[in-house]
């Protein structure tokens, strides 16, 4: 996506980027200051200071508890995201490309679409169990719809003329058209879907672990049940940091793959 900001970024070069970074840092510092001051007027079990949260973060990190929780979360987040993303893209592309598939599946999609992934917890427990696979199921459902709609929209928007050109140049099968024209043309939307899905699924681990599967979300619940607001905040911080790393990684892949835009 070519947003105004990235355009400005390239036009104005390093100075502009530096100014942006400096302003961003200012925002973070201001936020921490307000937090710090607010913590002076509240007991630690209501609002711990930033420093206290940082200390808990370091303690949890050193003890290995964070790494254990993170590994557990990734154990269902990764397969859930991969499976949901793959199925979502496959179905989205098929339905947008084939009128037949579109007609057959549209009523089902309309009915199933409004079901929130959280509502599937019951099915996850009944069909799969309170384990990583059950949590992965919920995450996959979340990834599925995001990627389904992104891929559907992308393929729906492929200009008919691209197909005309490809046919006139000898591409004479549907598979050939999908591979050589439809997928590359819809790639920006598909990648945006993947990126959104990865982030959304990372947040979904909270919901998926609600039923008792171990992970970062589980630690968050335990901490909040113990009224350890500092630990809650430390794990929220962990989730945000992981999201930041993930999203930055995917974004750099996105920029490289879509250099033609």
């Amino acid at each position: 996506m070519s947003t105004l900001e990235t355009d400005l970024g390239t036009d104005f070069g390093g100075d502009y980027d530096r100014r942006r970074l400096a302003r961003g840092a200012l925002g973070v510092v201001a936020f921490l200051l307000v937090w710090e001051v607010a913590s002076w007027f509240n007991p630690a079990y209501v609002l711990p200071s930033p420093r206290a949260v940082a200390e808990v973060f370091v303690v949890e990190l050193r003890s290995g508890a964070m790494l254990t929780a993170l590994t557990a979360s990734v154990t269902h987040w990764l397969p859930g995201t991969v499976v949901g993303t793959t199925l979502g893209i496959a179905l989205g592309v098929t339905m947008a490309y084939s009128d037949l598939a579109d007609d057959v599946a549209t009523p089902l999609v309309r009915v199933l679409r409004p079901v929130p992934p959280l509502a599937l917890i019951g099915f996850a427990i009944a069909w799969i169990g309170l384990n990583h696979a059950g949590a992965a199921f919920i995450i996959a459902a979340g990834a599925f719809w995001i990627n389904y709609y992104a891929a559907y929209g992308g393929v729906d928007g492929v200009p008919e003329e691209f197909l005309d050109v490809a046919k006139s140049l000898g591409v004479d099968t549907d598979l050939g058209l999908v591979r050589k024209v439809v997928l590359p043309s819809a790639l920006p939307e598909i990648i945006t879907g993947i990126r959104t899905g990865i982030g959304r699924c990372w947040m979904l681990i909270i919901a998926a672990e609600l039923m008792g599967v171990p992970g970062v979300g589980r630690e968050l619940y335990t901490a909040s049940q113990n009224l350890s607001v500092d630990a809650v905040l430390a794990y929220i911080l962990l989730m945000s940091l992981v999201y930041l790393v993930l999203d930055t990684g995917v974004k750099s892949v996105q920029n490289r793959v879509l250099a033609w835009q």
């Binding site: 003329e161 006139s168 140049l169 000898g170 024209v181 790639l187 033609w260």
Partner: peptide
């Protein structure tokens, strides 16, 4: 139907934006 015996050139070009100039020419 469309045939490779007949090369088509459109007013609005319809180049494949994800391919370089070389890639577009190589497509067929």
């Amino acid at each position: 139907g469309p045939s490779p015996d007949l090369g088509i050139v459109f007013q609005e070009y319809h180049l494949f934006p994800w391919r370089t100039v070389r890639g577009n020419v190589a497509f067929g």
